[in-house]
């Protein structure tokens, strides 16, 4: 049997480098996720307001995010902004901006969906019991919204983690890029490394995303 090039992992600090790369990817996605959740709650709440202008703006925003490939957004922010505005935004900040721009739109749409899916009689029966508006939101509406939201937003989080593999296109050395470097550096001695290293990268993504999506499934079942 051909060797799979897995031995490369134990050469020098290769495995540690891969883990470092993974951390770069996770750092970008986690920071973006946290900001997206905060802004998404706000945007989602804005979307439920009956304001025509606001609705159109939000609609356009959401469509732009859906239609534009994330890579194009990355290029616009990283390369485009430097040329046109002369801004010197680091690659990591550019990635966080793009991921947050994307995450906020999707999160906002999820929040909007969760909010309008709470039936009107939930508000009314809370009011009929004498609960104030604040009490109605704190005890009845928000807990139900969060329950609907968590499984959906976890799905978004795993998608954001996976999509960080694009940021190597603007020069960030994340896990996939580290993998490529290791393979390139050992092309002569370990020509099969592409399999072993990329399989390892796959495995690293898997052990990060799998527990998260398991959690989503578990919560969905528990709260259905």
């Amino acid at each position: 049997m051909q060797d799979l090039g897995i031995d490369l992992l134990f050469k020098g600090s290769n495995f540690l480098r891969l883990l470092n790369g993974l951390w770069v990817a996770l750092r970008i996605s986690l920071i973006s996720v946290v900001i997206s959740i905060g802004l998404g709650l706000l945007v989602g709440a804005l979307m439920t307001l009956q304001n025509k202008v606001l609705k159109v703006i939000m609609r356009i925003y959401l469509e732009i995010v859906r239609i534009m490939p994330q890579m194009v957004l990355l290029f616009i922010v990283f390369f485009g902004s430097t040329r046109v505005f002369g801004w010197n935004i680091s690659a990591e900040i550019s990635s966080i901006i793009v991921f947050t721009f994307w995450g906020t739109a999707e999160m906002g749409d999820l929040v909007r969906g969760a909010l309008i899916s709470i039936p009107r009689h939930q508000y009314e029966s809370a009011q009929a019991l004498g609960l104030s508006t604040v009490q109605t939101y704190v005890h009845i509406i928000i807990p139900q919204t969060i329950r609907r939201l968590i499984p959906l937003s976890i799905n978004l989080i795993t998608r954001m983690i996976k999509t960080t593999s694009l940021v190597m296109m603007i020069g960030i050395v994340e896990v996939l890029k580290v993998g490529q470097q290791i393979i390139e550096a050992n092309r002569r001695t370990s020509p099969n490394a592409a399999f072993g290293i990329f399989a390892t990268v796959f495995f690293l993504y898997f052990i990060v995303c799998w527990p998260i999506s398991k959690l989503a499934g578990f919560l969905e079942k528990k709260w259905s």
Binding site: H121, Q122, E124, S125, Q144
Partner: peptide, 11 residues
Amino acid sequence: MVFQSYDLFPH
């Protein structure tokens, strides 16, 4: 007040 629709809080 008791409503026609089941208005218990599901959570």
